[in-house]
Structures are given as C-alpha cells and as structure tokens.
C-alpha cells in the first residue's frame, strides 16, 4: 500500500485517496472548435507509461483536494507531490 504525501495534510496511506489518471491531460477550452482526433486524445487516449508519471489523486477521505503525484509506475516510488495549482518543477 502506497504512502502518499498530501501537500495539505501530510503523509497518508493510499486507502485515503482515489486515483484520477494522467495529470498531464489538459481539457480543451470550452466553445473551441476541435477535431475528432483532438477530442479522442483528450477523452480516451492515454500513454500508459512505464516509469516516471505525473498523475492526479484525490484525498477523498481527507481534505478532498485533488493533488498531483509524480510516481514511478514500475517501482511505485513517489518522487514528489504537488498542490493542484502548483507548477510542476
């Protein structure tokens, strides 16, 4: 079970969080004309990387904040966590 540092609450066990997928995905702006391909990429297509991955988690049984977690998908090592609005260095 992972041990995740919520930037708001501190170290908490994985059971307090829910997974939210790839954090690098950006939702297309509202009212913008976009191609089918762009929309498909946003809704469906994910890279499923092996290695360092920036992902979203929500501290669902804690502060309920969505956070960004930089994690290795192969080793589960967590390098750094960020607040939702924090720039990822």
């Amino acid at each position: 079970m992972l041990y995740i540092k919520c930037p708001h609450c501190g170290m908490r066990p994985q059971i307090e969080f829910s997974y939210g997928g790839d954090a690098s995905v950006k939702r297309p702006e509202l009212n913008k004309e976009i191609s089918d391909q762009e929309w498909d990429d946003f809704v469906y297509n994910r890279k499923s990387l092996r290695g360092k991955h920036l992902e979203l988690w929500q501290h669902i049984s804690g502060c309920r904040q969505w956070i960004k977690v930089e994690r290795d998908t192969a080793t589960h090592e967590i390098f750094k966590t960020f607040k939702a609005d924090e720039e990822v260095a």
Binding site: G20, Q58, R64, W66, A84
Partner: peptide, 12 residues
Amino acid sequence: SHLEYYLQIVWP
C-alpha cells in the same frame, strides 16, 4: 468528486 475535479483542476 466530479464537481471538485472541475473546480480544482480544470476551471480553478
């Protein structure tokens, strides 16, 4: 969670 996601991540 859905509402919180849009408020915190998509349209802060």
